[in-house]
């Protein structure tokens, strides 16, 4: 049985958080496995609420976005939902921060926030 975990990003305002529960919020699935995220490049729209739906194919991984102060653990068999509203255009690195083996250091991706 899957457990759904909601993590509201610190960057999400009360107003945008309210919008998240509305139907139609963009959901982007990201799967993790040693030693990659798929997709490793995720496009988001500036100011548009989004939910990253994180799953793991093999073991516990981390999902950390240092520039946004976001972090979650991705547990196999669970779906971790990470909500955010990008407030700045640009490229934002995300990475696995749970050591997962020889290749862990290369396990990263990028959020591309488009105006």
């Amino acid at each position: 049985m899957q457990r759904r975990v909601f993590l509201l990003a610190a960057a999400v305002t009360a107003a945008s958080a309210a919008k998240l529960v509305q139907a139609g919020t963009n959901e982007t699935p990201i799967s993790a496995k040693k030693f990659e995220f798929h997709p490793a490049e995720v496009h988001l729209k500036l100011g548009q609420p989004a939910i990253l739906v994180l799953t793991s194919e093999d073991r516990i991984h981390g999902f950390k976005v240092p520039d946004l102060g976001l972090r979650a653990e991705i547990v196999p068999g669970q779906e971790t939902r990470l909500a955010l509203t990008p407030d700045k255009a640009g490229r934002i690195v995300f990475l696995c921060d749970v050591f997962c083996g020889d290749g862990h250091e290369e396990m990263e991706g990028i959020l591309i926030v488009e105006a």
């Binding site: 950390k64 240092p66 520039d67 690195v93 990475l95 921060d97 250091e105």
Partner: peptide, 9 residues
């Protein structure tokens, strides 16, 4: 350098 995991949580 947190984006390179050069930190302690």
């Amino acid at each position: 350098m947190p984006s390179w995991d050069w930190t302690t949580a």
